[in-house]
Simulated assay, not measured.
Amino acid sequence: MKQSETIFNPKAPHILIEGATQFELGSFNGKAINYDFPKILNYLDAKGKLCFGKNFKIYKEDHELLLELASYFIQDHEYCKKLNIDTKKGILLSGPVGCGKTTLMRLLPHLVPHKKTYNFIPCRNIVFGFNGIGFKMIEDYSDNKAYCFDDLGVEHIGRHYGKDCNVMGEILISRYEVFKQKDILTHITTNLNAVEIEERYGERVRSRMRSMFNLLSFDSNTKDKRG
């Protein structure tokens, strides 16, 4: 992935600078930013090309979902309320293989470079780690950091010294406690729907996930964009 540093000026927080290009995301009255969604789309398209290459593209059929996600990331509380999105919960972004879930969850934090973002961790890597070091891996994710767990559901059951463990299920239960006690968020991307999540991780995990996440999803007919 290409690296691109965003320049942010606290005196003009509605303007982001990428290289020699300036992107105005809306207007600023000295207290709050009035964001303009078409300008946000323009910035995300440009930033996406800088981060992921020239073939990156914002698809028209994703605009509605992008509006929801962008509203959440910029913390537009009033509009999120209309969308039934709780800004104090994390995001669970679901959709078919190759629809762009991972890309968007890597891209959208760039809208707010002044805010601390989350650590992005593939679920498969977590289970590989568990297989090597055991239950300490689960304990390590009970910390005070925010995470986005990528591709929930593609990982195998963990096994350490002959003991099987549904590693991500256990981590999500731990993250629920972190969320309830410290208001620290967790985000997820997954190909699974709600029923498949419950089948895979159990009703106990699923019930906690309802409290932890806003469920946002791509259309089930969204095409694979990686081709």
Rank of each mutant, 00 (worst) to 15 (best):
46 A>Q: 09
226 R>M: 02
51 C>D: 15
199 E>V: 00
142 S>Q: 12
138 I>A: 02
225 K>R: 15
7 I>C: 01
155 E>L: 00
76 D>K: 04
6 T>I: 15
176 Y>I: 04
213 F>H: 00
173 I>Y: 02
24 E>L: 08
167 V>F: 04
41 L>V: 15
140 D>M: 09
6 T>R: 07
176 Y>C: 07
65 L>T: 00
37 F>C: 02
12 A>F: 08
173 I>A: 09
172 L>K: 10
47 K>L: 06
61 E>K: 14
158 G>Y: 06
227 G>C: 00
53 G>C: 00
18 E>M: 14
3 Q>W: 10
43 Y>D: 05
165 C>K: 10
96 P>F: 07
89 K>Y: 04
127 V>R: 11
42 N>M: 03
7 I>W: 05
138 I>Y: 03
221 N>Y: 07
223 K>W: 02
148 C>A: 04
43 Y>K: 04
118 Y>Q: 10
105 M>Y: 09
207 S>Y: 08
159 R>M: 14
183 D>L: 07
48 G>T: 03
79 Y>H: 13
130 F>Y: 15
81 K>H: 15
4 S>E: 14
157 I>N: 08
137 M>K: 14
34 N>K: 15
24 E>C: 09
25 L>V: 07
34 N>T: 13
136 K>L: 12
149 F>K: 01
78 E>K: 12
59 Y>W: 12
14 H>R: 11
159 R>V: 13
11 K>S: 13
143 D>V: 05
192 L>R: 09
193 N>F: 04
154 V>I: 13
18 E>Q: 10
179 F>Y: 15
224 D>Q: 11
199 E>K: 14
80 C>V: 01
156 H>K: 12
